[in-house]
Amino acid sequence: QVNIAPGSLDKALNQYAAHSGFTLSVDASLTRGKQSNGLHGDYDVESGLQQLLDGSGLQVKPLGNNSWTLEP
């Protein structure tokens, strides 16, 4: 069960990665100043990332080996 409060997208993504045990490689300029609506409930990694990114204009991309990145 994930419980991440709304706020900074950077912070939300870092909390989610730490909670879910995956690696997220992101260029900080992509997420700077963006906000997230947070995340509450049970999600697989990709669904949770998509939910956190909702409205940010960013997309999640798998890199393999439980690693992910973001792209515009």
Results as ranks from 00 to 15, higher is better:
F22K: 06
V60M: 11
T31M: 08
S20A: 15
L70S: 03
Y16T: 03
T23N: 11
L39Y: 03
L63N: 12
D27G: 03
P6S: 08
E46W: 14
S47K: 11
Y43G: 02
A12M: 03
H19C: 14
N3R: 11
N3K: 10
P62K: 15
L30S: 03
L49Q: 02
Q35M: 15
T23G: 07
V2E: 02
F22S: 05
G41F: 03
L9D: 03
D27W: 02
A17D: 05
E71T: 11
D44T: 12
K61M: 08
A17Q: 08
K61V: 14
L30N: 03
T23F: 12
V60G: 09
I4P: 00
L63S: 09
S29P: 04
G41L: 02
N66H: 06
L9M: 04
G55C: 09
P6G: 08
D27T: 06
Y43C: 07
G64T: 04
Q59D: 09
A12H: 02
G7D: 06
A5I: 06
N66R: 02
Q51S: 08
G41A: 02
Q1P: 12
D44V: 05
L24C: 09
W68H: 04
L9S: 03
K11G: 09
T69N: 04
Q35G: 07
D42E: 13
A17P: 00
H40P: 02
S29F: 10
S67T: 13
N3D: 11
R32Y: 12
A28H: 10
K11R: 13
S67F: 10
T31E: 01
D10R: 10
L39M: 06
R32Q: 12
E46K: 11
S8G: 06
S67C: 11
T31Y: 03
A28M: 10
N14L: 14
Y16R: 02
A5K: 10
A5H: 09
Q59V: 14
L30H: 05
D42W: 15
G21C: 12
L49W: 06
S8R: 10
L39H: 00
S56K: 03
D42V: 15
Q1E: 11
L39I: 08
H40G: 03
G48R: 02
T31Q: 01
V2Y: 10
D27S: 08
G21N: 09
Q1C: 15
D42S: 13
S20V: 15
T23P: 06
L39R: 00
G57R: 03
L24G: 07
L9V: 03
G38T: 02
V2S: 04
T23L: 11
G7C: 11
L49R: 00
V45Q: 05
L9A: 01
Y16I: 04
Q59H: 12
R32A: 14
P72N: 07
L63K: 07
G64I: 02
N3C: 15
V26L: 09
A28D: 10
D54I: 15
P62G: 10
H40I: 14
Q1T: 13
R32F: 14
L58T: 00
L52I: 09
Y43F: 12
V26T: 05
D44K: 05
V60K: 05
V45H: 05
K34W: 07
G38R: 02
D42A: 13
G48M: 05
R32D: 10
R32P: 02
L13F: 00
V45N: 05
Y43M: 07
I4E: 02
Q15H: 08
T31C: 08
N66M: 07
L70F: 06
S36W: 02
G55L: 04
W68K: 04
G7F: 00
T69C: 11
S67V: 14
Q51I: 15
N65D: 11
A18D: 08
Q15D: 14
R32W: 11
G7T: 10
L58C: 04
V60H: 09
P72Q: 10
A17L: 06
V45K: 04
L9T: 01
